[in-house]
Design a protein around this nucleic acid. Sequence first.
RNA 1: GGCCCGUUCGUCUAGAGGCCUAGGACACCGCCCUCUCAAGGCGGAGGCACGGGUUCGAACCCCGUACGGGCUACCA
Length: 498
Amino acid sequence: MSTENVRVRFAPSPTGHLHIGGARTAIYNWAFARHHQGAFILRIDDTDRQRSTDENTAAILRALEWLGMDWDEGPEVGGAYGPYFQTQRAKSHMEALQSLRDSGDAYACFCTADELATRRDPAAPDGSHGGYDRRCRSLPPATISSRIASGDQHVWRLAVPEERGQIEIDDAIRGEVRWPAEVMDDLVLVRSDGTPTYNFATVVDDWQMAISHVIRGDDHLSNTPRQVLIYEALGARVPRFAHMSLIFGSDGKRLSKRHGATSVEAYRDDGYLPEALLNYLALLGWSIDDKTTIFDRETLVRDFELGRVSRNPAVWDPDKLEWMNGAYIRGLSPTELGTRMRPYFAKAGLVRPDGTQGDDVDLDRVAPLLSERMKRLSDAVRAAAFLFGDLVEIEEVSRAKMAQTDGAAEILEAAAARLGALETFDAASAEAVLRSLPEVLPVKPKDVFQTVRVAVTGSTVSPPLFESLELLGRERALARLASARDSLDLADHAADPG
RNA sequence: GGCCCGUUCGUCUAGAGGCCUAGGACACCGCCCUCUCAAGGCGGAGGCACGGGUUCGAACCCCGUACGGGCUACCA
C-alpha cells in the first residue's frame, strides 16, 4: 500500500456525544494516517439539522482530544479542503448534482413517499428485490421541465447504468466483495427539500477532500456499492475502502445505551485513563501479534495496519477494560497518579481543584497506597475518604466484627497508649508498636491489626494500615482509637438494656 | 423476502495446509505471598459452529447447513 497521499477522515454526526464505537473508528483512522505519515481529517457530518448541535460538536472534539487524537484538517485547525462542516458544503453538493443532471446520470422523480410505499407493498416481491421501479426515469423531458417549473415536489435520483454488471471493491479488511448492479435501486441523491442524502453528501465530500481510504464501520458495507456508483457517475476516483466490524454488547446486539455507558465522556468521568481506553479500543478488533496486550500510542502508530484488523464483530468487555485501566494506573508514578486523582477528590469536595496548597491530605502521598487497589481513578475517593476529617464513621458490619473480637477494648487502649508515646509517629514505628502488642496482651496479631484498622479507617478493608496511620497523624489516629473504644461501651449498654 | 458480511476457550484474540498435544490476555477456580483488600507469583479448567469435499495431511482451501449481524428510507 502506497504511503503517498494517504488522506483519511473521521466524520461523526453531532447528534450525540462520541460513542465508543465511533471512537474506535477515529482511532483506526488516526493510527492509519499517522502510520503512513498521511493526513487525518475531521469532518462534522451535521446534515441532520434537527438533531445536530454545537454542544455535541464541542463535546466530540473534546473527547477526541482527551483520547489523544489530533487532526491535521478540520474544525479549529482549518485546512485546504474546507469547510469541514458538511452543511457548509451545500454548494458543492449542488454543483455535483448539476453535473450529474448535465451528464444524464441524475433524474427528477416525482413519486411521493406514499406512492412508493403502496407500490412496494403488494405482498412478497417474489424474486424481484422490490425496490423503486424507475418509472420516472422514462418521463419525457418536456413533462419533467414543466412539472419542475410548476413547483411539483421531486427528488433527484441516480440513474444506475443498465449494463453495469458487477460492482466490485477490494476492501482492505474484507478482501474482494461484489454485488450485482441490478439489485441497486436508483437511489435518492437529493431530497425534495433540496438537501443531499447521506450517501450523496459523503461521496461528494470524500471525493473533493481527496480522501484516499475510507475506514468505517461494517454497517456501511452495504452502502458501498451505491457510493461506488456515485463516484463513477461523478467521474471521481474511487477510494480504497476498509470496513471494520461493529462492537456488540454481551447479548450479541449492537452496542447501545442499554448495555451501559457508551460515550467516551462517561468513561472519562468514571475514572478511566485515556491511554487505557485507547489501548483497549485499539485491541478490540485489531492485534499486533499473539501476546502484546499493553502498548502505548507510539507502538500503535508504528504497528497499525488494516490487514490485521479482524473481520468478526467484537463484544465489549467491561471487565477487561477495567483490568487494563488498573494496569495503567499501577504504571503511573505517585505524583502522576496524585494529579490524575485530583479531579475526582475535588468533585467530592475533599480537595481543591487547582491543587495548589492547603489540602487536608497530600494526594501524592496517598497515591502509592492506592495504586495497586484501584481499577478506576474514581475508586480512590471511596478508598481514601477516611483520611479526611477528624473522626471516621465506622461501617456497621465492621463495627460488629470489632465488637466481637476478643480483647478489642484492651487492644484499642494499649494501641492508643503506645502509639501516643511514640517518639516519631511514622509507619515503621506504628508497625513495630502494633506487632509487639501480642507480647503483652493475650491477643492475636491479626486481631490487633483488624481492630485498629476498623477504629482508624472505619472498615475491615483499607489501604495498608501502618502507612495510613502515618498519613492520618498521631492526633487524629488517637482520637479515632478513643472514639472506637467508647463505642464499644455504648454497644454493650445498648445490647444489655437491663 | 432479497443482497452482503461474519463464525477459534464465557470474552478479546494468535493462527495465512504440516511449527497446533491449538498460543496469549481478561474473567473464573486452586495454591503461594500477606496487616485487611488488592497487586504479584505458580498452577488449573475451558475453544477450532455443524456436515460434506480437496489433500499424504485442514482451525487454515472449496461447497452446503445452522446461527449471528448489516443493508434493503426523501436516517446517518
